[in-house]
């Protein structure tokens, strides 16, 4: 009896330790970034263009660029990803080929982002002649987050109870009516989760935009989707490694803005998801 209690305590201790090991570094990073970056944050920093070789001024073009890129990626990836997920979950027969396709999509989300960058360079920049542009960058980021969106959306669709589909069909609804009116509304929270993950990834990645869109220094806003743009992750990389004598607080300030941006996007999606969950329960 004592023995089981002791081994239980030891098990709990290690489980707790593992959790702590995850939480503490993340917490520390956030604390350090806030501590060192907060002094840099003021209205000018957020709304001005970079000046003096990016050593002062603001990061407004990079913020806007990141918004454009993330928005473009979602506009491209969400509809395609969702449609593919619906096909895979609702229509595709359960056979070898489709299982391989599903597995391949899951694995695609593990492909290093720099590979997507090179792919985007070859396909969008060179082959389609979009050049280094917001369009190329958005499409590249979109392709990078497609597997995440497809996989999480498919899981969300598959977690809708089969009994809902059966009832709907038994009432004389067609398969498409069932999907649109019963399956999709109940899968929305899960689909949003996938979108959240995709958003965060698209906003934070540097490698895919490196060759396809990111401008080293562009002290103005992009004029069209065929224009280059600055983006926060790449800007952070540039001022951290490529430009000498950049004040530490500018670097941390940029990191803080990127962090807040991603957290803010996640927060919005979490709130939407929470509201859906509250309404739909089974």
């Amino acid at each position: 009896m004592r023995n089981t209690q002791r081994s239980q305590k030891i098990a709990f201790f290690f489980l707790f330790l593992a959790t702590l090991l995850i939480v503490v570094p993340v917490g520390l990073i956030v604390v350090i970034i806030i501590q060192k970056g907060l002094p840099a944050i003021n209205w000018q920093f957020l709304s001005d263009i970079p000046r003096q070789g990016m050593r002062s001024g603001g990061i407004f073009p990079a913020i806007i660029g990141t918004f454009y890129l993330v928005f473009g990626a979602i506009v491209f990836a969400l509809p395609i990803g969702l449609l593919a997920a619906i096909y895979l979950s609702e229509y595709a027969k359960d056979n070898m080929l489709n299982r391989i396709i599903k597995l391949a999509i899951v694995n695609l989300s593990g492909v290093p982002s720099v590979v997507y960058g090179l792919f985007g360079l070859a396909l969008f920049v060179v082959f389609f002649k979009f050049g280094a542009s917001i369009l190329s960058g958005s499409l590249t980021l979109g392709i990078m987050i497609l597997p995440i969106i497809i996989t999480t959306s498919r899981e969300a669709l598959e977690s809708v109870p089969q009994s809902f589909r059966e009832v709907s069909l038994s009432l004389g609804a067609s398969k498409w009516q069932t999907i649109r009116q019963i399956v999709l509304p109940n899968a929305i929270p899960g689909i949003l989760t996938g979108t959240i993950l995709g958003l965060g990834r698209a906003a934070g990645e540097t490698a895919p935009i490196l060759f396809t869109v990111a401008a080293f220094y562009l002290p103005r806003l992009p004029k069209s989707i065929f224009d280059q743009a600055m983006a926060l992750p790449y800007h952070l990389y540039v001022i951290s490694t490529q430009v000498p004598n950049v004040d530490e607080k500018v670097r941390y300030g940029t990191a803080l803005v990127l962090l807040v941006l991603v957290l803010f996007m996640n927060l919005v999606a979490i709130i939407i998801r929470y509201n859906f969950r509250k309404k739909k329960k089974w």
Partner: peptide, 20 residues
Amino acid sequence: DPVDIRRRVGMVFQKPNPFP
């Protein structure tokens, strides 16, 4: 078309399963 059949033959299931 099974849809035409199900409009003439309805079903009540074992577990009560109202939509949410």
